[in-house]
């Protein structure tokens, strides 16, 4: 995946702000309620890595308790783009399993469904957005699940 551009936290924050709607809930940040400094600070605190490919933003946070697993996020509805990104993570981070926390009803749900993730739970009322509490679905996939999709 040679056209993946790595963004540092301030650049990532600016890019998330420039993405209409798709960025709300990306790795838990919200460009509508947080300013750029708050977003950059949160991404740094998480140890997140954010990349841009074309119009889409992709990110991952390595699991510090189990380095072979990463939480991933995307602003794009394209499952093939996510599959390529996960292949990249498999090669460069030796990831063997992936987790995604996806706000209910967001475009990313179809992305993860489309590339072999399955839902392993729902966090009730985990986020507040647009005047109400939203559930966040937990999606999981192993490298083997991706190949089968």
């Amino acid at each position: 995946m040679t056209d993946l551009e790595r963004l540092d936290p301030p650049a990532a924050a600016a890019a998330l702000r420039a993405t209409p709607d798709g960025a709300r809930g990306f790795l838990g940040v919200d460009p509508v309620t947080q300013n750029d400094m708050a977003i950059a600070g949160e991404l740094t605190r998480l140890g997140a890595h954010v990349f841009r490919r074309g119009q889409a933003l992709l990110g991952f946070v390595p699991n510090s308790e189990q380095p072979r697993q990463a939480t991933v996020a995307t602003t794009s509805a394209d499952p093939d783009l996510m599959t390529e990104f996960l292949t990249f993570l498999g090669s460069y981070q030796r990831c063997t399993s992936y987790v995604a926390m996806v706000p209910s009803g967001s475009a990313a749900e179809s992305t993860f469904n489309g590339c072999g993730f399955h839902r392993t739970g729902t966090l009730r009322g985990h986020r507040y957005q647009t005047g109400q509490y939203q559930d966040v679905h937990v999606y999981f996939a192993t490298v083997g699940d991706l190949c089968r999709s």
């Binding site: 390595p62 510090s64 380095p67 981070q93 030796r94």
Partner: peptide
């Protein structure tokens, strides 16, 4: 114990 390389290398 000294770690070598990235965390994921172990």
């Amino acid at each position: 114990l000294e770690g070598f390389g990235g965390e994921h290398g172990c």
